[in-house]
Structures are given as structure tokens and as C-alpha cells.
């Protein structure tokens, strides 16, 4: 991949990837850094894939790994500083609305599952590949994530969406 190809690939994938990183990491301030880190890892790895869809899937997998690495680093720092309570997820960023705040209350893996399945439109196999999970477990995990999202929306007084029939 030369610089022109990379630039075209970047312009095609970066806006959506930035949204994914921002929502899954729940840290808007770190999203730019994580986006850069993702593309740097992508360029260093030089994945041998020609299919654009496969390249995009590899990119999301790399982004997820970068987010998880950042959380592990933050967790280690919190343990050392003793100034923070130990938490499994990153501290939620200030959301721009009720839906955002509700989404940030989900577990990180649930956020990633829902985003990849319903925003990016990935099939279960692609979601499993991006998150290093067993494909057979994706359906159940998505069901649980939807259930948790519904519970959180109800707890925050947000009414259910009425599904409009086409």
C-alpha cells in the first residue's frame, strides 16, 4: 500500500472508525489518539488482504485491541496511584444526550457488539472476528446487550422505540 492508497483508505474509513472508537471507549478526548494508534498499527502490521471489506474488518479489530490496551494501561495506573477505585471499564465521558449516556453505561464489549452489528452492519462472523470471540456466541451476546440497553433506557425514563412497520 502506497501513500495515495492509504490516504484514500483513510478518508473512506476514518469517520466511521472515529465514531466507533469514541463510543466504545467512552472517552471522546482519547478518540483522536486511539484513531492514530489504530492506523499506525495497521500500517506496521501490513496485513496481506486485498478485499476492502476484509481490510476494514482488520482495522476494526485493531481499533478494538488498541482500546482494550489503553484500558489495561489505565487500570494498572489506577492500581498504582490508589487514588481511583478499581473499575472494569473506562470512566464515562460526558455524553451529548440521554442516548449517549445510556450507551456509555453498557459494558465495553456490549458497546462494541452493538456498534459493529447495528451501525456497521457486520454479520455475526465478522463481529466475532473483530472482537476475537466465538461466532456461535455472538447471537446470545447480542441478545444480552440489547436487553441491557433496553433496561438502561427504561431506568433513565426513555420510552421504547415503537418499531414502525414498513
Amino acid at each position: 500500500m502506497d501513500q495515495n492508497e492509504f490516504t484514500a483508505f483513510y478518508h473512506e474509513t476514518a469517520p466511521a472508525l472515529h465514531g466507533y472508537i469514541r463510543r466504545v471507549s467512552a472517552d471522546g478526548q482519547a478518540a483522536d489518539d486511539l484513531l492514530q494508534e489504530t492506523y499506525l498499527r495497521f500500517l506496521r502490521a501490513k496485513p496481506e488482504v486485498d478485499d476492502p471489506a476484509a481490510m476494514k474488518a482488520y482495522l476494526y479489530k485493531t481499533a478494538t485491541a488498541a482500546i482494550y490496551d489503553r484500558w489495561r494501561r489505565q487500570r494498572r495506573e489506577r492500581l498504582w496511584s490508589l487514588a481511583f477505585r478499581f473499575r472494569d471499564e473506562a470512566p464515562p465521558a460526558a455524553g451529548t444526550g440521554d442516548v449517549t449516556r445510556c450507551f456509555e453505561k453498557l459494558k465495553p464489549r456490549e458497546r462494541a457488539l452493538l456498534w459493529l452489528a447495528y451501525v456497521e452492519g457486520y454479520a455475526h462472523g465478522e463481529v466475532a472476528g473483530a472482537l476475537d470471540l466465538n461466532e456461535k456466541s455472538i447471537k446470545v451476546l447480542l441478545f444480552r446487550a440489547r436487553r441491557n440497553l433496553e433496561r438502561i433506557l427504561r431506568q433513565n425514563g426513555i420510552s421504547e422505540v415503537q418499531h414502525e412497520r414498513a
Binding site: T100, L114, Y118, R146, V161
Partner: peptide
């Protein structure tokens, strides 16, 4: 329904 919420997000 999940797709609608996620689309909004």
C-alpha cells in the same frame, strides 16, 4: 429497535 437506537447514536 436496536438498529434504530444505534442509528440515532
Amino acid at each position: 429497535e436496536a438498529a434504530v437506537w444505534m442509528g440515532r447514536l
